[in-house]
């Protein structure tokens, strides 16, 4: 492999990130979000050092209490002296391209803890409840030495299965009385859970939800690696005693799940799944994106659209033509 020799500032960037420098890391994440070519090159240097962190995804409907839970989990894992990274995703407005990123409001008590790095990401048009930069941002935090990385998805409650491509452990947060379980089943979210949380268990219907989940899990003939997703009821976050207790249970389940992945060798499978997604994305960026860009800028796209509208050709023929012309 031929690569141009490393510049001193490039080496310095890598060193700083490996030493946990927040400013350098956050700037790199930002350049990744902006899809700068330099940032892409930085990732080539970073990639060999990735793969040590335990990545935990947290998904569930809007307002389910995901951020509140992340805040409590940070506290819990800091007690275990683990370095914690958080990536909190909120939606970009499709109308203005702007976004209000408010997840970290609930986590501000950790703002000054040097062992905690919280970074908000906007979806910027990505589907699936995450941002396109999330995979790379996970890598950056991993290389910074964060042992636990919590990824909070947008919380549309729909199509958020993308999170499984980026995490080792997925927590699905449900709330009683919101018809959440139906929504979640429809969105295919039930299948992705490694741990279920029934949040706001102070509310009516939490026992019923628990029973429904248990009944559902009882119907599953066999769980991969023998891991049956535990269902954990989390008490009212404004009721410190019981909340802390149920939280301890959740933190333990997170550690147990990781251990189980390691012991059953399923960790390798998950890593592989993650890597496959990365290859897909990288190929799309390297091959498809430049073609689309050029076709758009040259006006070819516009012309094709006209021909399609007049039914002079069809999208499938166009795709074959483009492939023949460009991918030799």
């Amino acid at each position: 492999m031929t690569q141009k020799p490393e510049e001193p500032e490039e080496r310095e960037q890598l060193q700083k990130i490996r030493a946990g420098d927040v400013r350098t890391a956050s700037r790199l994440i930002r350049n990744l979000e902006d899809e700068s070519p330099e940032a892409r090159n930085a990732m080539k240097r970073i990639f060999p050092y990735t793969g040590r962190a335990h990545v935990v995804g947290i998904t569930g409907s809007p307002g389910a209490g995901k951020s509140t839970l992340v805040d409590a989990l940070i506290a819990s894992f800091r007690k275990q002296r683990k370095g914690v990274g958080v990536l909190a995703v909120d939606p970009t407005s499709p109308f203005t391209g702007g976004a209000i990123l408010g997840d970290r409001i609930r986590m501000q008590r950790h703002a000054e803890d040097p062992g905690v790095f919280v970074r908000s990401l906007a979806t910027r048009g990505a589907l699936g409840g995450l941002s396109k930069a999330v995979g790379d941002a996970v890598h950056v935090m991993d290389v910074m030495g964060k042992e636990l990385i919590l990824v909070e998805t947008v919380g549309t409650g729909q199509q958020e299965v993308e999170i499984i491509n980026h995490s080792h452990t997925v927590i699905v947060v449900l709330v009683p009385g919101m018809g959440d379980e139906i929504q979640a089943i429809k969105a295919g979210i039930m299948e992705i859970a490694d741990i279920f949380v029934i949040n706001k268990a102070d509310r009516d219907g939490s026992h019923q939800l628990l029973n429904e989940l248990m009944a559902m899990l009882n119907m599953v003939p066999e769980f991969p690696g023998g891991w049956r997703p535990p269902v954990i009821r989390i008490g009212n976050c404004f009721d410190p005693g019981p909340f802390a207790e149920s939280l301890g249970e959740l933190a333990a389940a997170i550690n147990d799940h990781y251990r189980s992945l390691v012991e059953t060798d399923l960790l390798g499978d998950r890593m592989k799944r993650k890597t496959m997604v990365e290859i897909h994305e990288a190929l799309r960026d390297a091959i498809l994106a430049p073609i689309l860009k050029e076709m758009t800028e040259s006006g070819e796209m516009e012309e094709i659209a006209g021909r399609l509208l007049r039914k002079e050709t069809d999208p499938y023929t166009i795709a074959e033509e483009v492939a023949r012309r460009r991918l030799k």
Partner: peptide
């Protein structure tokens, strides 16, 4: 206006604000 806004709510200390500004770049 098309900007990305990190909103942190009330009662922030200057220390929290500076740390957050750096984490969020």
């Amino acid at each position: 206006a098309g900007f990305e806004v990190i909103y942190t709510g009330c009662h922030q200390t200057p220390e929290q604000i500076a740390a957050t500004a750096i984490q969020e770049d």
